[in-house]
Simulated scan of single mutants.
Amino acid sequence: MSSIENKDRTLEEQKHEFCGHSLNITMFKGAALGVSAYIWGPGLVLCQYFQDEKFDFTGKKVLELGSGTGIVGILTVLLGGDVTMTDRPRILSQIEHNVDANVPAESRARSKISALAWGTDQDKYPTDFDFILGSDLVYSPSQFPDLLQTLLYFCSEKTTIYLCSNLNARMGAYDFHNELLPKHFDSETLHQIGGDCVYKLTKKTPLETIDRV
């Protein structure tokens, strides 16, 4: 890990290796990015899961919500995906920096970076994604309605959602995953390390949804 002072922020770099790819991820600490300026455990656990399960996203359209540093989305690009990484506007420069540092020029066309506010402007995006990814999105109950609305908007019958959350350290995370999401999605716990759990979600059929009401 290394850090460099840069005007009003500290650039701190972490190196990780997944799926045979060395990732040099820079965190823009002190740049008013809040929690988005950190690499959190759930992101690393989701990357490790992709490695363990030998994921190949070649030819697949992928949307990442709350990309933060971009580590999950960048790995997904390197695994062949056509990836749109999203977050709040002020976070995008951090993602752009890490994409430039880690994605080869010949693969850059498969990485897109765009602002997306949950529950507000998701309808500006297409709904033909094969995969939706998110790590450590579930940490503030006030955001749960908007996050749920966004997931429902993007999830079609062909979409698979992978979320990784820390159930022990994030307020309301257990109830979100085990009570709220199962009302709308078929949910499966795939992997767990400590409090970090990887979930797979698919859209319920209309009949299943009625049965849950």
Rank of each mutant, 00 (worst) to 15 (best):
Met1Leu: 12
Ser2Cys: 11
Asn6Phe: 14
Lys7Trp: 12
Arg9Pro: 07
Leu11Thr: 07
Glu12Ala: 13
Glu13His: 04
Glu13Tyr: 10
Glu13Pro: 03
Glu13Gln: 12
Lys15Ala: 15
Lys15Asn: 14
His16Ile: 13
Phe18Pro: 06
Cys19Ser: 15
Gly20Phe: 09
Ser22Phe: 11
Leu23His: 06
Asn24Leu: 14
Asn24Gln: 15
Phe28Tyr: 13
Ala31Asn: 12
Ala31His: 10
Leu33Ser: 06
Ile39Val: 15
Trp40Gly: 05
Gly41Ala: 08
Gly43Leu: 02
Leu44His: 05
Val45Tyr: 07
Leu46Asn: 04
Leu46Trp: 03
Phe50Arg: 02
Asp52Pro: 04
Glu53Cys: 08
Asp56Phe: 07
Lys60Val: 01
Lys61Pro: 03
Lys61Ala: 05
Val62Gln: 01
Val62Pro: 03
Leu63Asp: 04
Ser67His: 10
Thr69Asn: 07
Ile71Tyr: 11
Gly73Phe: 05
Ile74Ser: 09
Val77Gln: 00
Leu79Asp: 06
Gly80Phe: 01
Gly81Pro: 01
Met85Leu: 15
Thr86Gly: 10
Pro89Asn: 08
Arg90Ser: 13
Ser93Arg: 08
Gln94Lys: 05
Glu96Ile: 09
His97Asn: 13
Val99Ala: 11
Pro104Gly: 07
Glu106Phe: 12
Ser107Phe: 13
Ser107Arg: 12
Arg110Thr: 14
Lys112Gly: 04
Ile113Arg: 01
Ser114Thr: 12
Ala117Ser: 15
Asp128Tyr: 01
Phe129Cys: 00
Phe131Cys: 01
Ile132His: 01
Ile132Lys: 00
Val138Arg: 05
Tyr139Trp: 12
Pro141Gln: 03
Gln143Glu: 14
Pro145Ile: 09
Gln149Arg: 15
Thr150Ile: 10
Leu152Asn: 11
Cys155Glu: 08
Lys158Gln: 14
Thr159Met: 08
Leu163Asp: 05
Leu167Cys: 08
Arg170Thr: 09
Arg170Lys: 13
Arg170Gly: 00
Met171Leu: 13
Met171Asp: 13
Gly172Asn: 04
Ala173Gly: 06
Tyr174Cys: 12
Asp175Asn: 13
Phe176Ser: 03
Phe176Asp: 02
Phe176Gly: 03
His177Lys: 02
Glu179Pro: 02
Glu179Asn: 12
Leu181Ser: 02
Pro182Gln: 06
His184Met: 02
His184Gly: 06
Phe185Met: 01
Ser187Gly: 10
Ser187Phe: 03
Glu188His: 08
Leu190Met: 03
His191Gln: 06
Gln192Gly: 03
Gly194His: 05
Gly194Asn: 11
Gly194Asp: 11
Gly195Lys: 00
Asp196Thr: 04
Tyr199Gly: 01
Tyr199Pro: 07
Leu201Lys: 02
Thr202Trp: 00
Leu207Met: 15
Leu207His: 14
Leu207Val: 15
